[in-house]
Design a protein around this nucleic acid. Sequence first.
DNA 1: CCGTAGTCGACAACAGTTCTCACATGCTCC
DNA 2: GGAGCATGTGAGAACTGTTGTCGACTACGG
Lengths: 136, 136
Amino acid sequence: MIRNTRQRTAVNAVFDELEGFHSAQEVHARMRASGDSIGLSTVYRAVQALVDDGELDSIRTDAGEAIYRRCSTRHHHHLVCRSCGRTEEVEGPTVERWADRVAAEHGFVDVTHTLEIFGTCAACHSAGAPSADQPG
Amino acid sequence: MIRNTRQRTAVNAVFDELEGFHSAQEVHARMRASGDSIGLSTVYRAVQALVDDGELDSIRTDAGEAIYRRCSTRHHHHLVCRSCGRTEEVEGPTVERWADRVAAEHGFVDVTHTLEIFGTCAACHSAGAPSADQPG
DNA sequence: CCGTAGTCGACAACAGTTCTCACATGCTCC
DNA sequence: GGAGCATGTGAGAACTGTTGTCGACTACGG
Ligand SMILES: [Mn+2]
Ligand SMILES: [Mn+2]
Ligand SMILES: [Zn+2]
Ligand SMILES: [Zn+2]
C-alpha cells in the first residue's frame, strides 16, 4: 500500500515549478536550499515511483545521469542544444509509424522507442559554438 | 600524435571477433581471461579513442553502462529485444530526413540523433516474455 | 487512539568511470 | 641504430550517480 508522505508530495510539487529535465541530485539540493528537509535516498525513491506512475519522464544524459521531467500528455521527443542545453519538444507521426513498422517487419511486438535529436541552436551557432559527432 | 601500442591494437582486434555491443569491463575481462595483459584504464582509453575515430559505436544501457560495438559503415539504428537482448540493425531514410527537417525548422545546425527501438522479439513472445513502458 | 506495514534518512556500499603519477615505450630526428 | 622526449600504461585511489541497510518514525485502516 502506497502512503502519502510529506516528502513524496514535495518532490512531486518540485516538478510543477520546474521546466525541463532535472536530476534527482539537483532536486534534492533545490529542496534542501529552500528549507525542505529530505534525504537523498528518498528523492531517488520518489522520482522512481513517479516514473513508475507515469507522472515523470526520464532520460539518461550522455554522461549517464538520469534526469526527470513532468510527463506531458502527448508522446514527443526532444531536440537538445549540445551547447546550452536548451530543449525543444518535437513530435510527428512520421517517425512513430516508421519505428512501429520496422519493428513489426522484424517480428517484434510490444514496441517502444527512444529518440533524441542533438544540434546547435541558432543562438549558440551565431555565438560560435563547438561541435560533436554521434553516428549509430 | 597518436601511437600504435600493443594494447590499442589488441582492443581493436577484440571487436573484430565480437558481435554486438560489449562494455569496457567485459572487454577487459575477456582479454585478461585470454592471457592478454592490459589495464582497465587502458581499455577505457582505447574504446574512447576508437569511438572518437569512428571505429566503434557506443550506446548507453538503461542501467547507465556504456557499451561499444564495431561501427558498421552505414548509418543505422538498433532494434533490441528487451527480453533476450537480441539486436537487429535497422535503417531508413524516412526517419533521417524527419530528424534533420524538424531540427532545421527549429533553427538547429550540426544535427545528429540517437534512436533505439525496443520490443519483444518473436521467439521471446511465443515463450511468454515480460513487458515494459517507455514514453517520452 | 493502536498496531503495524510502509517510509524515512544517515550512512555505507556499489558500479562504472576517470584521475594520478611513476614508469615504460613508440616515434622522430639525427 | 640510438637519444631524447612526448605519449601511453596501469595499479590504485578518487569520484559520481545510485542503491542497500537498518533503526527510528509515521500514515492510516480499523
Ligand atoms: Mn516517438
Ligand atoms: Mn539515423
Ligand atoms: Zn544553444
Ligand atoms: Zn528476444
